[in-house]
Computed example of a mutant assay.
Amino acid sequence: MRFHRLAGRVWLYPGDPDPLAVQAGVALVADDRGSVLVDAGQSPAHAREIRAALHAAGLPEPRWLVYTHHHWDHVWGACVWPGVEIVGHVSGRELLREEAARPWSHRYLREQVRANPRLAPSFRARALAVDSWDDFAVLPPTRTFTDEDDLPVGVRLRHVGGAHAPDSTVVLVPDSGVMLLGDCFYPPPAHLREPDDGPDLALVRRLLDDHYDWYVSSHAEPMTRAQARAQVDGA
Rank of each mutant, 00 (worst) to 15 (best):
R2P: 05
F3I: 05
R5F: 11
R5S: 12
A7N: 15
P19S: 01
L20A: 15
Q23G: 01
A24K: 07
G25C: 04
V26P: 13
V26F: 02
A27K: 11
V29G: 00
S35C: 02
S35K: 06
S35Y: 04
S43T: 05
P44S: 09
P44W: 03
R48M: 05
E49Y: 00
I50K: 02
A56F: 09
E61P: 09
T68Y: 10
H69T: 02
D73C: 13
V75L: 02
W76K: 04
A78R: 00
V80F: 01
G83L: 00
V84Q: 13
V90Q: 14
S91V: 14
R93H: 14
E94D: 13
L95E: 01
E98S: 07
L109E: 11
R118P: 06
L119V: 10
S122A: 05
S122G: 03
L128T: 00
V138M: 02
L139F: 08
T144R: 05
D147V: 04
D149V: 08
V153E: 12
V153R: 09
V153P: 08
V155Q: 13
H159E: 08
A163S: 12
H164I: 12
H164F: 14
A165D: 15
T169I: 10
L172R: 13
P174C: 04
L180F: 02
C184P: 04
C184V: 03
F185S: 01
D200H: 05
L207R: 01
W214M: 01
S218A: 15
Q227F: 08
Q231K: 08
A235T: 11
